[in-house]
Amino acid sequence: METDELQQTEESRERSFEWWHHSHPTFAGITGFFAGMLFVTALPGAFVGILRLLFDYDTAEQLFPLILIALVLPITMLVKRKTRRFAQFMFVGMLVTALVVLGVTSLVLYFMVDA
Rank of each mutant, 00 (worst) to 15 (best):
Q7Y: 12
G29M: 13
L71W: 10
F34G: 04
A115N: 09
F47R: 08
G32S: 03
E5N: 13
A28F: 03
F64A: 12
G36R: 03
L95H: 02
T3A: 11
A46H: 02
T26R: 09
L68V: 09
Y57M: 10
E5G: 09
L54A: 15
L38P: 00
G93M: 01
G29L: 09
A60Q: 10
T97F: 04
I69S: 05
H24E: 07
A87C: 10
F86R: 00
L102W: 05
L43E: 09
L68Y: 07
F91P: 14
Q8R: 14
D58P: 03
P74Y: 01
L78T: 12
Q62P: 00
L71C: 11
A35I: 01
T3F: 07
Q88I: 14
F86P: 01
L38W: 02
E61T: 10
K82Q: 13
P25L: 02
R15P: 03
F17S: 06
F17G: 01
L53S: 14
F55D: 09
S23W: 04
E14L: 14
V113Y: 06
W20F: 15
L107A: 07
L6N: 13
W19L: 11
Q88K: 00
T41R: 02
V113Q: 10
D4H: 12
Q8D: 14
F34N: 06
L68W: 08
T59R: 15
T105M: 05
Y110I: 00
L53C: 02
E18A: 14
I69Q: 03
L73S: 09
V40C: 07
L95I: 14
F111W: 13
F27A: 09
E18I: 12
D56R: 04
F27M: 06
V113F: 09
W19K: 09
S106Y: 08
T59Q: 09
G45F: 02
P44S: 05
V48Q: 13
L6D: 08
T76S: 12
T105K: 11
E14D: 12
L54V: 15
M77R: 09
E5C: 01
E18M: 12
Y57E: 15
L95K: 00
G103R: 04
A42M: 11
M77F: 12
V40Q: 08
W19M: 07
V113A: 10
R84N: 14
M112V: 14
R13L: 12
V96W: 02
F64W: 13
A42C: 05
V101E: 05
M90S: 08
S23T: 10
S106Q: 12
I50F: 10
E10R: 12
V79G: 04
F89G: 03
L102D: 02
Y57V: 14
F111M: 02
L102T: 08
E2M: 07
A35F: 04
S23A: 07
F39Q: 03
M112G: 00
M94H: 01
K82N: 07
L66R: 13
A42G: 07
A98L: 13
L51V: 05
K80I: 10
L107W: 11
G103Q: 03
L43I: 15
F33W: 05
S23C: 01
T83F: 04
R81M: 08
M1S: 15
T3N: 12
A28I: 01
D4T: 07
E61D: 13
R13G: 01
Y57C: 03
G36H: 04
A98W: 04
L102H: 08
F111G: 00
M37P: 02
A35D: 06
H21T: 04
W20P: 00
V108M: 08
V101G: 00
F17A: 06
T26L: 15
F33C: 06
